[in-house]
């Protein structure tokens, strides 16, 4: 089993390496001429030439990639083109902001989604299940910004309970932060929870139709015991992967929400970078999101290996 885990972690590292390669290819090779892609069509040949030298485009691509990669590994993500600031310095506080928001949402969404998902699975077809189905179907159907704007309209503009923009500072107290970030966190929670709940329900239902669950009922065990002792231990692995998958989704969902609430996180930084075609910023943000994604997926697989009884007790 240890070997499986080591292999998986190694595979994760390898994937991370490929992610860096993909980012490099997508941003510097795919557009053909990066200089004109960044500067747009209005650029004069002189500015283009100067810019090419600034980017080091006269050197072969693999040299530039290796240089970028080694610098990134040493914590040097380059300098933003627009304001000439060190990317890593801007990125670090924004990353902690994003993690705060994502963690905030996850702390509410994960326990609620698992409990409600299991509840609606074991009450299949009953009221709570139908209600959960309708509500989550609604939540996954609407765009993030729709929920966000409704929440703003009701709770910020009309009721005035929460601020409509989530401005946070470095020296803000924790409770203030929790208060200010409440609306984006709730929006994110609703979105992620809906997906997670539906998937949890489906995986528990898949377990509930196994013959050993029927056997447990035929052994005369009460429903509670069948669920707690026979269904849930087997549902753990699928539920873990559901949670990880949705946390990865949450990382991305953050982008739009941050823009709506003008929240100073990585997502907004990336969107800014993208609209200004600020190459180092785009690369750095993509690296952060891609890394988090790979990390969560690897973690999910490792946990799934750990809870699998067949792997825990090999022949």
């Amino acid at each position: 089993m240890l070997r499986l885990i080591i292999t998986r972690v190694f595979l994760g590292c390898l994937t991370l390496l490929v992610v860096t390669l993909l980012i490099f290819v997508a941003t510097e090779i795919l557009p053909g001429d990066v200089a004109s892609a960044v500067l747009g069509q209005g650029a004069t040949p002189d500015t283009l030439a100067a810019f090419r030298i600034e980017l080091g485009l006269d050197r072969p691509a693999y040299v530039r990639y290796l240089e970028w990669l080694t610098n990134a590994l040493q914590g040097d993500l380059g300098v933003a083109m627009t304001n000439k600031r060190d990317v890593i310095e801007t990125l670090t506080p924004r990353l902690s902001n994003t993690l705060f928001l994502a963690g905030y949402a996850a702390a509410i969404a994960v326990p609620m989604a698992i409990v409600l998902g299991v509840l609606s699975a074991i009450n299949e077809g009953k009221f709570i299940d139908r209600a959960a189905n309708v509500l989550t179907l609604g939540a996954i159907s609407v765009p993030e910004f729709f929920i966000a704007y409704i929440l703003i309209l009701v709770f910020a503009t009309n009721l005035g309970w929460f601020p409509s923009l989530s401005t946070v500072y470095a020296d803000m107290g924790l409770w203030d932060k929790i208060y200010v970030v409440a609306l984006p966190a709730v929006t994110l929670t609703l979105l992620v929870m809906a997906h997670m709940l539906r998937m949890t329900r489906a995986s528990v239902l898949a377990i509930m139709s196994q013959p050993y669950i029927e056997m447990a009922f035929l052994k005369g065990l009460p429903r509670r015991r069948v669920i707690l002792r026979h269904a849930l231990p087997n549902a753990a692995a699928p539920i873990i992967s559901v949670v990880a998958l949705n946390l990865a989704y949450l990382i991305v969902g953050v982008v739009v929400i941050e823009v709506v609430f003008v929240y100073p996180g990585v997502g907004q930084y990336m969107v800014d970078g993208v609209t200004k075609r600020d190459l180092p910023v785009i690369q750095a943000c993509a690296l952060v999101f891609g890394g988090a994604f790979v990390l969560l997926n690897t973690l999910a697989d490792v946990l799934a290996i750990l809870v699998n009884p067949r792997l825990r007790h090999p022949r």
Binding site: T15, V255, V271, V274, F289, G290, F293
Partner: peptide, 9 residues
């Protein structure tokens, strides 16, 4: 292995 939104952006 890269989120689709990030890729598209």
């Amino acid at each position: 292995s890269i989120p689709i939104l990030v890729f598209a952006l």
